[in-house]
């Protein structure tokens, strides 16, 4: 099945004219040409900057990442429907001072999904594999949404590789997210994975909601788009059961952590940010009362300033044996 065919099949479209319309519409939406208040956000990059991209072998996957700049390394881990382009408004400004590394997570963007699951533990191990490949002993890590959960796993299991961490739109437990959102998104993932027909409302969600970014991302760049159903099934398994950290687990984190507290995040209740900040012993908070789940897109300058201030205050320690 070619790329267009699986995509259209996934959104459950049959009429040929409608197909073309939806196809074009999706591109317009996810390219940011049409504005949308949805989670897909808007990318306001005037001139696309081409960073050095590379494919590497990590564990059982071929991982794509881009890197730019010199200085202390920052690994930026995108959310469940994202890819490295989610950080377009961070990677360029921050690379003036830091080495900014933006990978595509397992099964997303240009990174293959391999034999393994899309579990948080596995994806954290992938990020450590990336560090190993780059010869980086310690890096700062920034995670958005699912990426925040991956960074939390790195903080718990690989703190010796993490200098500091910034959590944006992050959650520590699958139950942190609103039940209705979980239910709705989980159902769509399950249907896409099993090739079941979507309701009209679900089709709308796939075309206009956060799924659009993911579809566009896979459609335009996936190593093997025929893996769509498999990736969806793996994503569904992880999305509906993970992560399962508790406040007690957060209390064991030793590294400095900046929690971005967005006051208007529809996917993560504000109390979750408070719990992260009060339970992680060395946590600081950056308040963005108007911020949504895509705060790093909407208030890029302010987020970038917070990140810079925080990382400057926590330089990578040069320790010797």
């Amino acid at each position: 099945m070619n790329r267009k065919a699986w995509y259209l099949k996934a959104v459950g479209v049959t009429g040929p004219t409608l197909k073309v319309l939806i196809y074009l519409f999706t591109f317009l939406i996810s390219d940011g040409l049409l504005s949308s208040e949805s989670e897909s956000g808007q990318l306001n990059v005037d001139e696309p900057v081409h960073l050095a991209g590379e494919y590497i072998r990590v564990d059982d996957i071929t991982m794509y990442y881009e890197a730019s700049g010199n200085g202390e390394p920052i690994i930026m881990v995108h959310g469940i429907f994202g890819d490295h382009t989610r950080w377009a408004q961070q990677s360029v400004p921050l690379s003036a001072e830091f080495k900014v590394i933006t990978p595509d997570s397992r099964g997303r963007g240009r990174t293959s999904d391999g034999e393994g699951p899309l579990s948080y533990g596995r994806m954290a191990a992938d990020m450590i594999g990336l560090l190993d490949h780059l010869g980086i002993q310690k890096a700062h890590m920034i995670g958005h949404s699912e990426g925040g959960g991956i960074v939390l796993h790195a903080l718990v299991d690989y703190p010796d590789r993490v200098a500091s961490a910034v959590l944006i739109g992050a959650f520590y437990n699958v139950n942190n997210k609103p039940a209705a959102f979980q239910q709705r998104s989980g159902n769509i993932m399950n249907k896409l994975a099993r090739d079941l027909p979507l309701t009209e409302e679900e089709q709308k969600e796939v075309i206009e909601g956060p799924f659009a970014y993911f579809q566009k991302s896979l459609l335009s760049q996936a190593q093997d788009p025929s893996r769509f159903s498999v990736v969806m099934a793996k994503m569904h398994a992880s999305f509906t059961t993970q992560p399962t950290y508790t406040l007690d687990v957060l209390r064991t984190i030793q590294r400095p952590v900046l929690v971005v507290k967005a006051g208007n995040d529809a996917l993560v209740p504000v109390q979750v940010f408070d719990e992260l900040a009060s339970s992680i012993p060395n946590a600081e908070v950056a308040e963005f009362p108007q911020g949504s789940h895509m705060v790093m897109v909407e208030q890029a300058d302010e987020i970038n300033q917070s990140v810079k201030d925080f990382i400057r205050r926590h330089p990578i320690e040069i320790s010797r044996n």
Binding site: G135, I136, I316
Partner: peptide, 22 residues
């Protein structure tokens, strides 16, 4: 005491060769 656990690790800037655990 957990803060001591970083002792012995190379700083990123000192790694001259790819640090591969494989």
């Amino acid at each position: 005491l957990l803060g001591l656990s970083a002792i012995g690790s190379l700083a990123y800037s000192e790694a001259t060769e790819p640090f591969s655990e494989h």
